[in-house]
């Protein structure tokens, strides 16, 4: 019996640096370990260089200098990796699309940022598009809906990849949301700065999810998921939210986002 969850990977070991993202690091390490498992099962050697934030909150708040400082730090930290893989489309978009824009006046750094961007990938699309993973051999019993995070979809072209892998999960049935491509209203600091507006947008997303009659909603971005889970829970919905990597790695047996440990001190 094989222990591998992933089939169809190539033979050459690649040194993959996991850019875990601050949200996964602090809020939900399970997603990081799920990413490690998926990558190792596909034959990669995974390393985790010391890291902090990609700089996106600063970048989107108009503070380019801080964003550039954090970009420099990340680029240096992952210098000796063949690939950088990130379990988030939003941070991925920052690393891949926006880092090169930060060093317009510095050709040497700009070239480094370009090289860094070209070796960096969002987790699920890295598995399918770079490693050629076609299916996973795990089980998840339930009906799930997949929410396309805006950055994954529009900055990185991630749409079919997670659906393809989810289709290979035994026991899982995938339903499409009417508005899978509509923003959940997270938007990083937007959710706190424009709370009322963000709430109006995520309320529509929660309605759409409830209408789809799925037991679980999945996405590739923890930011969206914290927002969606928080709204569903506040509204008393029983729909659970998880990162897609947890399901693909067969690590979805623990509590879903915002749910208590079974038997946690009562």
């Amino acid at each position: 019996m094989t222990m591998n969850a992933v089939e169809g990977a190539g033979p050459r070991p690649r040194r993959v640096g996991l850019f875990v993202t601050c949200l996964v690091d602090i809020m939900r390490p399970t997603v990081g370990f799920a990413a490690v498992k998926l990558l190792e099962d596909a034959g990669c050697t995974v390393v985790v260089p010391a890291q902090t934030c990609c700089g996106q909150p600063a970048y989107n708040s108009g503070d380019r200098a801080t964003a550039a400082r954090l970009a420099r730090q990340a680029i240096t930290a992952f210098e000796d990796c063949d690939h950088v893989v990130v379990p988030s489309g939003s941070c991925g978009g920052m690393l891949i699309r926006h880092y090169p824009e930060l060093f317009a006046g510095e050709p040497e750094m700009a070239a480094k940022a370009e090289r860094f961007a070209s070796k960096t990938h969002e987790l699920v699309s890295f598995l399918t598009d770079v490693l050629g993973v076609e299916r996973v051999t795990v089980r998840f019993d339930g009906t799930v809906a997949y929410h396309d995070s805006c950055s994954s979809l529009r900055e990185l072209g991630v749409k079919a990849q997670p659906r393809r892998l989810l289709a290979s999960v035994e026991g899982l049935s995938l339903v499409e949301l009417d508005e899978a491509e509509t923003c959940c209203g997270f938007g990083g600091l937007f959710a706190a700065k424009y709370g009322e507006l963000s709430n109006a947008i995520v309320s529509r997303k929660a309605d759409d999810i409830r209408k789809a009659a799925a037991g679980t909603v999945l996405a590739g971005d923890l930011g969206c998921l914290l927002n969606i889970a928080g709204k569903l829970q506040r509204a008393g919905s029983a729909v659970e939210a998880r990162h897609v990597a947890e399901v693909l790695a067969g690590m979805a047996d623990g509590p879903a986002i915002g749910e208590p440990q079974k038997g946690a001190g009562r």
Partner: peptide, 25 residues
């Protein structure tokens, strides 16, 4: 950890006024 999430939290009012905030693992 008892509920797995917060219904209110200091400095996070813009968030928790409208939705729960998951607790870290």
């Amino acid at each position: 950890r008892r509920k797995g999430r917060f219904a209110s939290a200091p400095l996070a009012g813009g968030w928790t006024r409208y939705r729960d905030l998951a607790a870290p693992q």
